[in-house]
Amino acid sequence: MTYNSFKILFVILTLAIAFLGWQGAISWLWIIGIILFGVAILSYGSATLQSNFFTPTFSKLKEPNELILTFDDGPHPNTLAILEVLKKHQAPATFFCIGKQAQQHPDILNQIISEGHIVGNHTQNHSNKWGWMRSKAVRYEIEEATKNLESLSGKPIHFFRPPFGVTNPRIGKVLRTLPLKIIGWDLRSLDTTIKNPEKLWQRIKPKLNNSSIILFHDTQEHTVEVLEKTLEYCQSHGIKIVSLADKIETPSHA
């Protein structure tokens, strides 16, 4: 279900409830239940990027035994260790970079690109208020990051990942006007909350046999160790690390 189809369904249900209520054929409990159901659907759609509820999202691979590596929240000093592991295994990755982080670490941003990886937009500030921002602020966060990333790297930005994977009607409306492909994931490592490398690895390992887009964070030191194990496992089990650019058409800039 998409947001537009949900709106149509909700209008139909509202009219039906109003009619049945007027006829005395439905109780307030049913009305409250329908409202709570609507709130639950909206909440799920907002928090689950791969649901495609508010905007089309590329979140899953179709071919078997493939993995796309993605990293959020850099560039960061720890990104250098991540790059070292990727270079060792000749593995491509996509880094969703925060604009202000790129301004602080332009050399790392350019190393990401020079080593053959993709840079995507992860907003200018990665604000904790992202899901509550007005459309104007949402547009600024995305466009300002694109401007800074392109200026610093000399490369066009084609891909975007919203902070926390959160979308809503305002964010979706802005994204539909921008020449960016929205990239999600179907395997979330949770490396920002699971700090023990072995526990993190045990969470990821059983899920690697499914073709996935995995979400890591290049800001986390323990992710370096888990990335090494992930790449070694993929190599020994015939899982190919593929580039995002090989799996999705690059949007053209207006």
Rank of each mutant, 00 (worst) to 15 (best):
I82Y: 01
N121K: 11
Y140P: 04
I17N: 05
G120F: 06
F54Q: 00
K62Y: 11
K247M: 10
T230E: 03
I34R: 00
N196P: 09
A81G: 05
Q124C: 00
W130K: 03
V224M: 02
L13Y: 06
K155T: 15
S114A: 15
I112E: 07
A93R: 03
T48F: 09
K62L: 13
I213V: 10
E66M: 12
V119P: 09
K195D: 03
Y44Q: 01
K60H: 14
T14W: 04
N110A: 12
H122P: 00
A102R: 01
K88H: 11
V224L: 00
R188A: 11
V119N: 06
G165A: 08
L109H: 01
D72Y: 02
I183E: 05
E144Y: 04
S59F: 14
H89P: 09
D186A: 07
E84D: 15
T14A: 12
L149M: 10
I183T: 04
Q111G: 03
N110C: 09
G184F: 08
S5T: 14
E228K: 11
P169Q: 06
S5D: 10
G184E: 01
R134L: 12
K88T: 12
L42R: 10
F54N: 01
D73T: 01
L20A: 08
F95S: 00
S211V: 11
T57V: 15
I98M: 07
F54K: 00
P106S: 07
S135K: 14
L208D: 08
H217S: 12
P75F: 05
L190M: 14
G172M: 02
T192H: 05
A40K: 10
P162H: 05
L29N: 10
S189W: 02
H126D: 06
Q235S: 13
T146A: 11
Q104S: 15
K136M: 08
V119E: 07
P156T: 08
H253E: 10
P106W: 08
L86E: 03
P77I: 06
L36C: 11
L69G: 08
P197H: 01
Y3T: 05
P77S: 02
S27W: 11
I241Y: 06
I118C: 12
T250K: 14
T250R: 15
P163Y: 00
G99E: 03
G45I: 04
G120E: 03
G184L: 06
I98D: 01
K229M: 14
L178N: 03
V174Y: 05
T14E: 00
L215Y: 04
